[in-house]
Each structure stands twice: as C-alpha cells, then as structure tokens.
Simulated assay, not measured.
Amino acid sequence: MTLPIHLSGTYWETLHPPLLEAGTYAVDPEPYGPPWRPWGEIGAQEAAARGVFAPIGTLSDGPSDTVLLAPGDMRDTGLIAERPEGYCMGINGSGGPNLACLSCGLPVGSRIDDCGQWQVVRLLPQAVVRLPGPPERLVMDWAELPADGVLWHGLSEYRDIPAGVALAHVVVAAGGGPVEVAPGPVAELLGLALAALLPSGEGAKRLDLAGPGLGEPAAALVLVPVHPQTGEVWRPSGGAIAVPVEAPLWAELAFPPHRTRLPVVGGLPAGVERDDPLPPHPQLPFRPSRDAFRYTLARMPAVREPWLRAIYDRGC
C-alpha cells in the first residue's frame, strides 16, 4: 500500500495504534534512523538534494527505502537485548536496529512502539528478499472506493494530521492569494486555518470537494482523495487544481456519517421523541496539525518562496 499520509505527525506521550493494517506493507523513501545530523551541518543545498527545502531540526543519515510492516506480521525475529532505547512506554530503535533474525542473529530492522510514535516495524532494505506469495489485493477503481471499508477505518482523534497535510497543499496551490472556502465540512476542517494564514479580499479562489461519487463543483481548488493502494491522486477533468487528501479523511468530508445516515423522507410518529445521541460537537474549534503542516511544507520546493517561507517560519 502507499505510505500513509498520517505518518507526518504524531501526539507526544500518547500511545499510537499500528501505522499499517495487518497483511500490508509500505516503503518509506526517506532516510530513517541514526546517525542524525543537525540542519546547520547539512546545509540547504544537500538538504534540497534529499527533498527537504526548509530548515528542520535534524536529518537522518540512516538507510532509505526501509520496508514498513505491522508489528503483528513479523515472524522469526527477536529483540536485541542490548538495544532497549526508548522514551518511556516502549522502544523506538533510536540507537540502531533492535530486531535480529532468530536463525542467523543479524540485525534486520527496528520495532517501534514507544509513545508519540506509530507502532510499526522498519526492516532494513538489504535484509528484505521478495519472494512469490499469494495474489495481492486487486487495485480498486475510483468508483469502488466510497463504498469500500478501506475508507472507514476511523481517523478519530488523529484526523488533524492529514488535515495539516491538506492545509499545506491548499496554501501552496493558492499561491499566496485569498481562498473562499465552501461552507460545510470543508470550512469546518480548514476555514479558520486558511483565514489565519492567507489574506482576504477580491479574486479569492474557491475551495470545495470533488471526487468519485461527488462530481466536480465550480471551484478553482478541489480537495480530492489519494488512492489508499496506489498513492494516485484523483484528477478532475476540468481546470481545477487537485489538492490531495488522505482517503479516509476525504470520505469523512464527502460522506459524513452523521449527515448521511438520516432518513431521507418521513419522520417519527407524533409524540415520539428521538432517543439516539446527537452528533458530537467539539468544545474547541478544530485545528489542523501544526507539525504535519510544517513537515509537509518543508518537503515542497515552493516553501523557498519568501511569502511561503514566512508562513513556514511562524507555523499555523
């Protein structure tokens, strides 16, 4: 499957669920693990060659293309007793690979389950050999996605992370100009953040939802899903700019459960009161993840433009 977008953010001192579903894997093209080098030592030119275009704290000089698996899918490996590095609730491989092959004893990767990190196993690329296996799941057509359970695995409290990623793409697509956000779920998700980051005034580009099962509204910018299996971005047929959104979050916006599961016609009999709970309402306005927003901007070449670098430096 494609590398999950929500890998770009976490919650500190919080235990996270597994990053991937059982029976799936993904490849992370970015270097991961020690040694770590500070930004001042690397410099802008080398960082840009590695796909990072704005200052961040440190960059990894570890291996690229680590293979990610759900921890429960691992077999015939054991923890290296001399590598117990972690913060407080688990291990994180910060000192190097902490998993070894039970047969030969060679390090093969790291199990990560500490607080503030997604639970995952990262296998060293040189330790992985691809062998024939059962047929992989067929790639779904776009038309199949809205009805497929893969979109409904529940972002719950983590939805602010893919929202921060989407916010970064919207800001870049807007080119520093004002954005008019379509009322409803899109405004609830990004309206306040965009109003704080971008100017207001005439010539605003309208932002709305588009995708399979929705069609294409009259908007200059459209939030569209990223295919969960291939990483492909749904493309509008008109001239709108496609802004990628992680598929589960897009489905949540496009087909909100609490707004689409009510009866279309009819009502309760006279004198009968509804006893199912009302949709939950948050105590505070929703805010996209600042960390995911900055993580995404740092990896977009446009962040080198002065207006966008100013936004990056102050966060969201």
Rank of each mutant, 00 (worst) to 15 (best):
residue 6 H to N: 09
residue 6 H to R: 14
residue 7 L to Y: 08
residue 9 G to E: 06
residue 12 W to Q: 13
residue 14 T to M: 12
residue 15 L to T: 15
residue 16 H to F: 12
residue 17 P to S: 07
residue 18 P to T: 10
residue 19 L to P: 02
residue 19 L to H: 02
residue 20 L to W: 02
residue 22 A to S: 11
residue 25 Y to V: 12
residue 25 Y to I: 12
residue 27 V to R: 01
residue 27 V to G: 00
residue 30 E to I: 02
residue 30 E to M: 05
residue 30 E to Y: 08
residue 32 Y to A: 13
residue 35 P to G: 04
residue 36 W to F: 09
residue 36 W to Y: 11
residue 36 W to L: 14
residue 36 W to P: 12
residue 39 W to E: 10
residue 41 E to C: 06
residue 42 I to G: 06
residue 43 G to R: 03
residue 44 A to R: 02
residue 46 E to A: 10
residue 46 E to C: 03
residue 46 E to H: 07
residue 46 E to Q: 08
residue 47 A to M: 06
residue 48 A to N: 00
residue 48 A to D: 00
residue 49 A to K: 06
residue 49 A to W: 00
residue 52 V to I: 07
residue 53 F to T: 03
residue 55 P to A: 11
residue 59 L to V: 10
residue 63 P to K: 07
residue 64 S to P: 13
residue 64 S to L: 10
residue 64 S to Y: 03
residue 65 D to R: 04
residue 65 D to W: 04
residue 67 V to S: 05
residue 67 V to C: 07
residue 67 V to N: 05
residue 70 A to P: 07
residue 73 D to S: 04
residue 74 M to A: 12
residue 75 R to S: 05
residue 75 R to K: 08
residue 76 D to I: 09
residue 77 T to D: 06
residue 78 G to S: 11
residue 80 I to F: 05
residue 80 I to E: 05
residue 82 E to Y: 13
residue 83 R to K: 11
residue 87 Y to S: 13
residue 87 Y to R: 10
residue 91 I to K: 02
residue 91 I to W: 03
residue 91 I to Y: 04
residue 92 N to D: 15
residue 93 G to L: 08
residue 94 S to L: 12
residue 94 S to H: 08
residue 95 G to E: 09
residue 95 G to N: 05
residue 99 L to Q: 08
residue 99 L to G: 06
residue 100 A to C: 05
residue 101 C to I: 01
residue 101 C to K: 03
residue 102 L to E: 15
residue 102 L to T: 15
residue 104 C to E: 06
residue 108 V to R: 00
residue 108 V to K: 00
residue 109 G to H: 01
residue 110 S to D: 09
residue 112 I to T: 08
residue 112 I to C: 07
residue 113 D to G: 03
residue 114 D to G: 09
residue 116 G to P: 10
residue 119 Q to K: 08
residue 119 Q to S: 12
residue 119 Q to E: 15
residue 120 V to W: 00
residue 124 L to R: 07
